[in-house]
Computed example of a mutant assay.
Amino acid sequence: MATAPTVPTREVITNGDSRISIIRPAAPIAGAEADRMLTVFDINHPSISPDNYNKADGAPLRVLYSSAAKLDISKRSHEDMGFWHRSVDHSEIIICIQGALRWETELGTHVLRSGQALVIPRGVAHRSALAPESAEENILLEIKVAADLDYVGPDGALIP
């Protein structure tokens, strides 16, 4: 059952690197659309079954799309990706939700474990393979962004 939305007592509006804090907005922000709804989906639902589940050359399942970014769900279980590929039009953010996979790139190799994220810059050749830590089902979120990405988070969170 959906709950009624609450009116924020404090709201922070972000535009680029600028942040403005306001208290109880009197009207919707220009450009906000009243008919928009939150999108909530379950990546563990049986209908989220990408073509790459048991195939080395299968494709992840696209679940969100815009001209600036795309979200795919990948569930690899038994087959390594037997080929190298590169994305010339977007950078990729790979987030491991469950299991682990070894990512081989022309910049180096890393075993991506649950809770970790890997950024593959646009144009870098890569492929994935099972790792000793792989689970029966390895679930990844693949965010494709039509821009170059720079890490600006804390240095302590970086994994060598």
Rank of each mutant, 00 (worst) to 15 (best):
D89F: 06
Y53L: 07
K55F: 12
R76L: 01
A129F: 02
H78Q: 15
I95W: 12
L61S: 01
H85D: 12
H85P: 05
H78I: 14
G82N: 05
I95T: 14
I48Y: 05
A146N: 13
L141H: 09
I120R: 00
S74R: 02
A4C: 08
E104N: 09
A56C: 13
W84C: 10
E92A: 00
W103C: 02
N54Q: 11
I73Y: 00
L71R: 08
S49P: 07
H85W: 06
R76T: 02
L130S: 03
M81A: 02
T9C: 06
D57I: 10
K75Y: 03
V145L: 09
L112T: 12
T9H: 07
S87W: 02
Y65P: 02
R113P: 04
S47Y: 10
I43C: 02
A4Y: 11
I139G: 00
S21Q: 12
T39L: 06
S18E: 13
S134C: 07
G115K: 08
R86K: 10
S66K: 06
A117M: 14
V119D: 07
L149E: 03
E11R: 08
L101P: 01
V40H: 08
P132Q: 00
D35M: 08
I120P: 01
Y53F: 13
P121F: 01
A69V: 10
G82P: 10
D17N: 08
N44A: 15
A34D: 11
E142V: 11
P154L: 12
S87F: 01
T3A: 14
R127Y: 06
R36D: 15
D42Q: 09
A131Q: 00
S67K: 11
A59E: 10
A117K: 04
K55M: 14
S66H: 09
A32E: 15
W84H: 11
R10E: 15
G31K: 02
E142P: 03
T109C: 05
I43M: 10
H110A: 15
V7Q: 11
T9W: 05
S114Y: 04
I43L: 13
E33D: 12
K144D: 05
A147D: 12
P5D: 15
P60N: 13
V124P: 06
I139F: 01
I159R: 02
T109M: 10
A129N: 10
L141C: 04
E79I: 05
I20G: 03
I159C: 01
Q116L: 15
P121K: 06
E133H: 04
V145F: 04
V12R: 11
E133K: 00
I159N: 02
L64W: 12
S91D: 05
G108L: 06
W84P: 03
Q98M: 07
E133C: 04
I13H: 06
G108D: 03
R10D: 15
